[in-house]
Design a protein around this nucleic acid. Structure first.
Lengths: 347, 347
DNA sequence: TTGTAAGCGTTATCAA
DNA sequence: TTGATAACGCTTACAA
């Protein structure tokens, strides 16, 4: 109806080569069942006729689509700020490509529900596996895929929120320790965090890690939650700095919020890093682009995208997979952090 | 083999409802050929059994996949800097979603060849239509799709390089005029441009527009080409400023290069905007994030993504489509531009 | 209004 | 080693 297909079918090749359909199929798929002579002839004929397998027919026949599904709910504004997703796509695609798989992408407006997309995917077989990101606490997608153990899935989240589904996790606890230790060594005793939305599992995990780590270090810790938008970053920063005893360092859950925080501080006449240290969770080229450069937690997102693909392919091949850990974060110190400013005192 | 499909098929529903397969098909597709009574019964039964159409079977039967293909060649580093692609995805997906279409995404390492992906798509019918971006001069994809007029395609490029293929174009000539006029009014008589790769059709179009516009205005104009990387932006800026008579304003083809240019200037002790004005082609939140804010040419990329979808769907429906123009650019003046600094003189 | 059956292009079973 | 042939799940022309 829509697109004229490769008019050359297996039957055409069979006719031209003077053999049967099945002989052609075996020959083209490198399977036993044909003599070398027929195989050669078939291959030659198929090639000269420009035969390519029809994907729909193949999919129908062997119940696989060679596509991995990824459904995101994003606002158009937020998504262009989001270097994470793009890096994830690129990593996934690179690895999928090597296995002749495609990425089936669905992006719906924020507030929309991806559940119906997932239900369709499970039912209509248009994808061979699924990736779940931005897992929320009590996320209905987790329950859905637990009810469909036959569907290969990888959740990018903390195992505590994925209910036993195959999970690829970033070691946010270690990262939190990295930052807290770093700031502690700089003499900070009161730090704050401008976190992402509270409903996300990874936000919650970081929340817990920071509380634990700061309390262990005997540091004072405050936390506000935003939505990754620059506006939220600015607002939370203003509120934190309005405290009677404001923090001397703020860690932001995204570079967009960190940069907004930096601007807010500067606008308020708060010197960075002299009076306020700033750390961004997730590094991107903007962290290098601003002045001062933003100290950041860096992770290799494309690598994570690559890493998740074999976890999916192994499940598609019928194997069991274990949870995995991403490459560790690395702290990149830049100009936005310095020794704590002790109010009215000398260090 | 891979994923257990919706075990509920049309035959199952037919059996349960006590009618024939075709009756079920007609009923479920809202087509005439069944009585209202049977239709109701079928719908009820199908719903209670949780029937969902199998996508492969549907695709095989009516030769359509309900997916649009997009194949990009990008380096992992560049892509995370690239807010354009992400915004394009999001716009396309939003509109595709409303029509029950998916985006089939392929990203291969830079230097790789997307031609084989396109050839596969044409032959295996796994997508109903295709979007082509980053069209190069003499791009082989143009020739390929001209040889396959049956395949719905939209090229995001200047019509001069798309050989008559349906094209969605941004009015870069108007945008160039916008910038040149703006700088001219500020008194600049010698401006430069750090452009994208020369091989891209849109780079070439901008090159021409700038030459024309500046010569009309009697301005001196220089141009260097980079690859959108911050490194290239820094390098080209350094070279331009090393001229015996350096430009007083530079227009960059991407925000990543513009920001690198800004940093380079600052590092060299060149005051922005007092001694050098900077303009970024394409606005993103980084342009607001740096100090001074970057004057930028803004366009609504998600809107372009949305706009291209109907052009594709109409072709899929068998209609002819005309070339279209994107929403016009808008110049957003920020702190990075000011009146030209006349060397050794007063204005 | 209904049901039967052919066809879409593969893969895979089973006789020959 | 081969070649019919059924099966995958759906659409649709054709008969009843």
């Amino acid at each position: 109806m829509a697109l004229l297909k490769s008019k050359v079918t297996i039957s055409d090749v069979a006719k031209a080569a003077g053999v049967s359909n099945s002989a052609v199929s075996y020959a083209l798929n490198g399977k036993p069942g044909v003599s070398e002579k027929t195989r050669d002839k078939v291959l030659k004929v198929a090639d000269s006729m420009g035969w390519k397998p029809n994907s729909a027919a193949k999919a129908l026949s062997d119940a696989s689509s060679r596509a991995i599904g990824l459904a995101l709910a994003y606002s158009p504004e937020t998504i262009s700020v989001d270097s994470y997703s793009m890096a994830l796509f690129s990593g996934m695609c690179t690895e999928l490509e090597r296995n002749n798989y495609s990425l089936m992408l669905r992006i719906i407006p924020v507030g929309g529900d991806t559940m119906s997309i997932h239900r369709d995917w499970i039912a209509d077989g248009s994808v061979d596996g699924v990736v779940i990101t931005n897992v929320e606490i009590g996320d209905p997608r987790i329950e859905l895929y637990k009810q469909h153990p036959e569907v290969p899935v990888v959740a990018l989240a903390d195992p505590s929120v994925t209910g036993g589904l195959p999970t690829l996790t970033s070691d946010d606890v270690a990262a939190a320790r990295l930052v807290v230790d770093f700031l502690h060594e700089l003499g900070h005793t009161h730090i704050a965090r401008v976190a992402g939305p509270e409903r996300y599992g990874h936000t919650f995990g970081r929340d817990r890690a920071f509380i634990e780590e700061t309390s262990e270090m005997g540091m004072h810790y405050d936390c506000l939650h935003g939505d990754y938008s620059p506006e939220a970053g600015a607002d939370c920063t203003a509120r934190l700095m309005a405290f009677s005893e404001p923090p001397t360092a703020i860690v932001y859950d995204s570079d967009s919020m960190a940069i907004a925080g930096l601007q807010t501080a500067v606008a308020k006449g708060i010197a960075v890093p002299e009076q306020l240290s700033i750390v961004s969770w997730d590094d991107s080229f903007v962290c290098r682009a601003v002045t001062p450069g933003l100290t950041a937690l860096k992770r290799n997102v494309p690598a994570s995208g690559k890493q998740l693909v074999p976890m999916l392919l192994r499940q598609i091949a019928g194997e069991q997979v274990e949870n995995e850990l991403e490459d560790p974060y690395e702290l990149i110190p830049r100009g936005s952090t310095a020794a704590a400013c002790v109010p009215g005192g000398v260090r």
